[in-house]
Amino acid sequence: MVRTITVHSFKGGTGKSTITANLATALAARGRRVGVMDMDLEGPGLHVIFNITPEEVKHTLNDVLLDAVSPDEAVIPMNGRLGLEAGSLYFSPASVRVGEMLRTLRTGFELESFSRAIAKLGTSFKLDYVMIDTHPGIENDTLLVMGVCDHLVIVSRIDQQDIFGTGVVVDIARTLEKPAHLVVNMVPKGLKASDASKLVKGIGHHFKVDVAGWLPFSDAVQSSLSKSVFILTNPRDAVASRFQDLAKQLESYN
């Protein structure tokens, strides 16, 4: 049965799309069948990381929701493009029309419609995981994406406003009874690994939320300019290793 993992953050620029793309790729490299869905309708970025031009996007999830096309037509197989031999990775691009459609749906059925579309993708491609990249903040569509997920990964930086917002998202996830997991990204280079771990654990303890892990600030990640999947272009980098550890952590969630 497909497990849906939503990757969310309160503020922008936390590296959410980078984390989504790398975790999805790491899971696929570990033999999983993974679908990646870009629901960052305001600032989609996964297609850039996956190196997909707008001309290549023929159909989107919107068309699946409307039963206009089969799921096969609305996803882009990524294994060949990324040179992945193990597992399977499929990408479903964002559509600005999804937001419009969700707004026009009769209140009270949004969740069911969206869940059905995800289940359809999951069944068609025998997916183990669907990973959804959202846009930052708390809007109706992000609440919806939080509502359909089995696990919520909250990405935060060590930043006063960001940590505050993370607390808000954790509170909302708790109310929706969604298991939440914190990933702290761009931990300053000056911190020793052991101190960074303590600090991140402290944040988790403060908000009573599970800590999935943390990623250091990396010049290599920054210089990649979000134009490629980092773990594939820099497999020997220490951050790539951390992405793989995080992927293993995701696999441990029921």
Binding site: T107, G108, F109, E110, L111, E112, I138, N140, L143, L144, M146, G147, F164, G167, V168, D171, I172, T175, L176, E177, F207
Partner: peptide, 22 residues
Amino acid sequence: AVSEEASKVKNQEFFQSIKEQI
């Protein structure tokens, strides 16, 4: 303050609808 900010969201009609659907 975190709880108060979260409550603003939780009081919205759409949030209530999503919660009921879940």
